[in-house]
């Protein structure tokens, strides 16, 4: 019978881990990124595949939520038409801080091949974007990599909301939301 000796009292043996509040908060935030269930075009098919069992977003703590109030990440998956831009911005505004945006695919990044009057030429014209994801459409692995890059980005951020908020929270009286 094996006999173990755990030196709890010795300087090296205490089961204590030291960290900072920033790291702890960001550890929680980055490992429970809940994106909004929001697809615009064919990229959303890849986004659905990423969430389904083969690529399995759940193992990263990424669970799609059906309400912008419960979501942290907005994945703009597909072509954003000008008619729809107002509603995309409204969904973004309804998300609670802290919130991040992934622009998925060429159409969302720059308008892509839809170089026309009816397509928003890059969603960053209306929503501040954290991760730009190239591809047409990006494979699920690419979206997973983008999610991991976003996690790394979050881990570097300050946990202080005032430091990384994207919207000017002080401007409560203004009718329109501030972009930055």
């Amino acid at each position: 019978m094996a006999q173990h000796q755990v030196n709890y009292a010795s300087s090296a043996g205490l089961p204590i881990a030291l960290t900072s509040v920033d790291k702890l908060v960001n550890w929680g935030r980055s490992n429970s990124l809940w994106p909004l269930t929001y697809g615009l075009a064919c990229c959303a098919i890849e986004m659905m595949a990423s969430g389904a069992s083969r690529y399995d977003f759940d193992r990263m703590g990424t669970i799609f939520r059906a309400s912008p109030r419960q979501a942290d990440v907005m994945i703009l998956a597909g072509t954003l038409s000008k008619k729809h831009s107002e509603f995309a911005r409204r969904l973004y505004d309804q998300m609670t801080e802290p919130k991040w945006v992934i622009s998925m695919g060429s159409c969302a990044n720059t308008g892509g091949m839809f170089n026309t009057y009816a397509t928003v030429q890059g969603v960053d014209r209306i929503i501040p974007v954290d991760i730009y994801l190239p591809g047409c459409a990006p494979r699920p692995e690419t979206l997973q990599y983008a999610m991991m890059m976003l996690q790394k980005k979050i881990r570097r951020e300050s946990a202080d909301m005032k430091k990384n908020t994207k919207q000017d929270l002080t401007n409560q009286t203004g009718k329109r939301a501030r972009l930055i």
Partner: peptide
């Protein structure tokens, strides 16, 4: 300028800038 005018207002045209048609 449709989406800019609609979401932010015409005064934000200068901040956001014209559309970039060069991908």
């Amino acid at each position: 300028w449709y989406e800019v005018d609609k979401i932010f207002g015409k005064e934000y045209r200068d901040i956001i800038g014209p559309e970039n048609r060069d991908p």
